[in-house]
Design a protein around this nucleic acid. Structure first.
Length: 967
DNA sequence: ACAATGACTTGGGTATACACAT
DNA sequence: ATGTGTATACCCAAGTCATTGT
């Protein structure tokens, strides 16, 4: 078996996958891809609003929501009402306060819901049935839009399937009504939001919440009726099952609450698909056949294993790979690097405590050392500077500036402990400029009347006014959140008067801000220059720090200014006020004996710390999401660079054992234990499709998922689709609410497993109900030290790049063709990682222009060809002069042709790139040494691949990697 | 044992700088 | 020289994952 082949053919192979996705991208994204996907999402949300409204109606009986009820009057359309109710529910959350919410969320909400459920049940039943139909309808509708004309046929099929589904839904509906306890199921099918509240807690999470237990019991008894048969089988099979499943079976059968509380763990684990395994065993024919198939396969693998183990004890590398690894050993000290990297991790736990105690003593000494070291270095540098230089003065200046900055930390020995620095000095962060009040003549109007706002209220109003023509202000959640937070900063008087956002007129303010922006754009050169210089001087002072004797750039030394929170996707907190950060909020981290930054006049820091186990220089807690924000170093710094390097080294270590891991998870697809099967299938997706891990999310964040948090509604199974067998269609919103859509043919066994996982689950249920990222990563770490889910993404991205570069590069290419090849390889990775961007505005226009240019160029080439012919004729019997003319013409023609090629290349490149963002993968996933090696090998100037910033970030790689570097 | 938190990486959007054509 | 379109820098949100606290 050849590593390369197995990797490329079965896993994440961009060659076939790329085409697949590219097709998709071309067909799907082009046609307003992102809009559609947004609407897709909001459709989804809308379904749940119906229910929310009902809930709210009930609530408003007891509680008085002043502003909301008035709002309601203003909203005339029914659509508005729907939205309105949905943000009301989110504002309720906020009223409870962030801190409370975290602690009490589950308990309180559960209780509330329990009470309400009874009231709402009937209505909900109706709603949910209609909404689920609605959903199907909308799905198919969506798909119609999604697919291009090319996919019309496919669409027809889909629609048929949707019809089928409709039928099924109705059936489900019937059974639901016949059931006496249907709360939970209702919640699943009708409200994703609610579902999230607790049912999304993975079954593996062992909740102590009594309410939850009760619900689990309810659910079980639900199933008990319909699934009796299966459970009986359970009893029969139980002896064969392993212990975990046995426990679950007992649980399902027993209905006594006590035993369930006793077995809490299993109670919460037992979910709708608990019987699946035994049921699965009930269709043995096919499975047995398969098992045998696989077993024979397995034998083959086994013998191979033995062989490998013979010649390579610790890593089962095939020959090809071993050559690579030996190459690597010779080429660089990479393998040595592995050692300290791994060593570094080990002692963390033990050491941390010791460190903390030691630090104060040891670090002081060290700091002294470094301080003197710093001085020493400075002297050295001075010497270097004064050394006679043969270059011209200009050059010398430039060179010096560069040389001085370069710190070849990668040639130094690494620290094995968790200490990140010994000496750290900086000037603290830069705060946002204070608020500048509006000029007198710029006014705000409420209900048609001019109104002077207090300073605070005006500032916040200004945040909104600036965004007036942004999409955000059309969203109700945004408006509600903003209005609520705005009212908080108003004076009592203002608050009493301003009760409806719709009556607020920010237009004058908006115009004023636009005017300022316009003026800023039209600044004269001198003004721009002055501004630039001012910024540079600020950067010079605050943008750098001294760390272990070296001056390094800080990443974000400016503290975020106040404003309105702009969450992505359907973020429940969008529009909330992001408070101004004061020095009193800011924690400073630096050396004890450094010059401690001075807070702005009349202020003091929240705290000054000297923690050298972290890399941040300053931090504060942001008020919207209650998250800590940090001031950290620039990517060009040692601290970041070393980590980056380490990341790729981990990925390379994965390369060495990837075959074994793949073999293992394939084996686990047959496991008796559900949790292992789920883990294995999920890992397969993470590996093959480079999915993100998929942590659990709170409900006060946008609803997005990754691999482990996939829900049943996010995949569709097709035994056959477009001539392919066992196709899984993924359609979900991932990080940043970017849609992931992919049709993936999978192994039969995976397909069957997925069917099993999905059995008897509702769309809102977790696909992998026995799995979360913690379990996954724990398992991965057992397979290889330092291995986590995201390493697969790095590994597959980098490996793909290397493969694609090998495949796409022809040594005879011109530089521009080389760049095209590189970009294509880069693009394959971006597609694999689903890195998208919205089509830049004016793309079509610029494409048209490019085409015109190309046409023009063609014409001039044709023209030139004619001229060449003429000149040739003249030259034949003409003088020397005419021959020179001929040569000239020939050269011109060649140049023109070259230009044409360049343009055409540019055209392809740009068009292929319009929906794909290359930057993210280039910056975060591709081992820069691969690119550097490629450049060196084919004599492509590194500047063509990496711009200045990127070269700074990857300086270590540029310095380190030779043309023969292999990932 | 699990939720919460902390630290750090990854990610797309947007304002601005810059390059390039006219 | 100017305008236009693209590339880059900047911004900060949103992930991952390990550790901490309860």
């Amino acid at each position: 078996m050849d590593v390369d082949n197995s990797a490329s053919d079965e896993h994440c192979s961009p060659s076939h996958k790329t085409k697949e996705s590219e097709k998709h991208h071309v067909n799907g994204i082009n046609n307003g891809y992102s809009e559609k996907h947004k609407s897709h999402k909001s459709d989804h949300k809308d379904k749940h609003r119906d229910k929310d409204r009902d809930k709210d109606r009930d609530r408003s009986k007891s509680k008085d929501y002043k502003s909301s009820s008035k709002d309601k009057d203003k909203h005339s359309s029914s659509k508005d009402k729907d939205r309105h109710s949905s943000h009301k529910s989110s504002s309720k959350d906020k009223e409870r306060g962030v801190g409370d919410r975290h602690k009490d969320r589950h308990r309180d909400k559960d209780r509330e819901k329990d009470k309400e459920k009874d009231k709402d049940r009937h209505r909900d039943d109706k709603k949910s049935s209609s909404s689920s139909k609605d959903k199907d309808h909308k799905n198919s509708h969506d798909k119609e839009h999604k697919s291009s004309s090319k996919d019309k046929e496919k669409d027809g099929k889909d629609r048929e399937k949707d019809k089928l589904k409709d039928g099924k839904d109705k059936d489900r509906e019937k059974s639901r009504h016949s059931s006496s306890k249907d709360k939970d199921r209702d919640r699943h099918s009708s409200s994703k939001d609610k579902h999230k509240d607790k049912d999304r807690h993975h079954s593996s999470s062992k909740s102590k919440d009594k309410d939850k237990d009760r619900k689990d019991r309810d659910r079980k008894s639900d199933k008990h009726n319909s699934d009796e048969k299966k459970e009986k089988r359970y009893v029969e099979d139980s002896s064969k099952e392993d212990s975990v499943d046995e426990d679950e079976q007992k649980l399902v059968i027993k209905e006594e609450p006590e035993s369930q509380i006793e077995n809490e763990q299993n109670a919460s684990t037992a979910s709708s698909c608990d019987y699946n395994l035994s049921q699965f065993k009930d269709e043995p024919k096919e499975e047995e056949e398969e098992e045998q198939d696989i077993e024979t396969e397995g034998e083959g693998e086994l013998t191979m294993d033995v062989k490998k183990e013979e010649d390579d004890s610790d890593e089962d590398l095939p020959l090809a790979a071993r050559v690579e690894s030996t190459k690597r050993k010779i080429e660089s000290d990479d393998d040595e690097d592995d050692v300290p990297l791994t060593v570094r991790k080990k002692p963390k736990k033990e050491k941390k405590e010791k460190e903390r105690k030691k630090r104060s003593v040891v670090s002081d000494e060290d700091e002294e050392d470094y301080k003197s070291a710093k001085k020493g270095k400075k002297k050295k540098k001075g010497e270097v500077k004064s050394e006679p230089n043969t270059d011209s003065p200009k050059k010398r200046k430039k060179k010096d500036a560069e040389e001085q900055e370069v710190w070849k930390w990668w040639e130094e020995e690494k620290r094995a402990d968790g200490v990140k620095w010994v000496f750290l000095e900086h000037k603290g962060p830069v705060f946002a400029p204070p608020y500048e009040p509006l000029p007198e003549k710029i006014k705000f109007y409420y209900d048609g009347h001019e109104m002077k706002l207090s300073l605070d209220a005006e500032e916040v109003a200004g945040f909104y006014a600036k965004m007036l023509d942004h999409d955000y202000t059309t969203k109700d959640i945004f408006n509600t959140n903003f209005f609520k937070d705005w009212r908080k900063v108003m004076t009592d008087k203002e608050r009493a008067k301003i009760t409806d956002l719709k009556k607020c007129d920010f237009k004058k303010m908006h115009a004023y801000f636009m005017d300022i922006a316009e003026k800023n754009r039209n600044r004269t050169k001198e003004e721009k220059q002055a501004l630039k210089e001012k910024n540079e001087s600020i950067q010079k002072e605050y943008g750098f720090c001294t760390i272990d004797g070296h001056k390094e750039k800080i990443g974000n030394y400016k503290i975020e200014p106040p404003g309105l929170f702009r969450g992505r996707g359907e973020h429940p907190k969008m529009g909330m006020l992001k408070r101004r950060v004061l020095p009193e909020d800011v924690m400073i981290n630096c050396s004890k004996n450094s010059k401690i930054p001075v807070p702005p006049d009349g202020h003091k820091w929240k705290e000054v710390r000297h923690d050298n186990t972290v890399t941040w220089l300053a931090s504060w807690t942001e008020n919207v999401q209650n998250q800590v924000k940090y001031v950290m170093l620039n990517p060009s710094s040692k601290l970041k660079g070393e980590k980056d390097w380490q990341k790729y080294e981990t990925a390379r270590r994965l390369h060495k054992c990837i075959d074994k891991i793949r073999r293992e998870y394939k084996e686990d697809w047959k496991s008796k234990e559900m949790r292992i099967r789920q883990r294995a299938v999920a890992l397969y997706f993470i590996d093959k499709l480079a999915l993100r891990a998929g942590n659990e999310k709170d409900e006060d964040q946008a609803d997005t998922v990754g691999c482990c948090s996939l829900r049943v509604e996010h995949i569709e199974l097709h035994e056959r689709k477009d001539d392919k067998e066992y196709v899984v269609v993924f359609d979900f919103l991932g990080k940043d609410s970017i849609r992931y859509y992919n049709e993936v043919p999978v192994e039969k066994r995976v397909f069957k497993n997925l069917q099993l996982f999905m059995e008897n689950k509702n769309p809102g249920d977790d696909l992998f109900d026995r799995l979360n990222t913690t379990i996954m990563n724990k398992h991965l770490n057992e397979l290889m030290e330092g291995l986590t889910a995201k390493v697969f993404r790095t590994y597959n991205a980098s490996f793909t790049l290397q493969q694609q570069l090998d495949k796409l590069t022809d040594p005879n290419y011109s530089v521009s063709e080389m760049i095209l090849a590189y970009n294509r390889a880069n693009r394959a990775v971006a597609i694999l990682c689903n890195h998208q961007r919205s089509v830049p505005k004016g793309h079509q226009k610029s494409m048209d222009r490019l085409k015109e240019k190309i046409d023009a160029k063609r014409e001039s080439i044709a023209d030139a060809e004619r001229q060449v012919k003429d000149a040739q004729r003249d030259a034949k019997h003409g003088s020397v002069k005419e021959k020179v003319v001929y040569d000239k013409k020939k050269k011109m023609l060649a140049r023109l042709k070259e230009q044409l090629v360049k343009l055409e290349v540019q055209e392809t490149d740009r068009d292929e790139n319009k929906t794909i963002a290359l930057g993210t993968s280039k910056l975060n996933y591709l081992d820069p040494r691969i690119s550097v090696a490629w450049c060196k090998k084919y004599n492509v100037p590194i500047e063509k691949i990496y711009n200045k910033t990127q070269r700074d970030k990857f300086r270590w790689a540029i310095d380190m990697a030779g043309p023969d570097y292999i990932f």
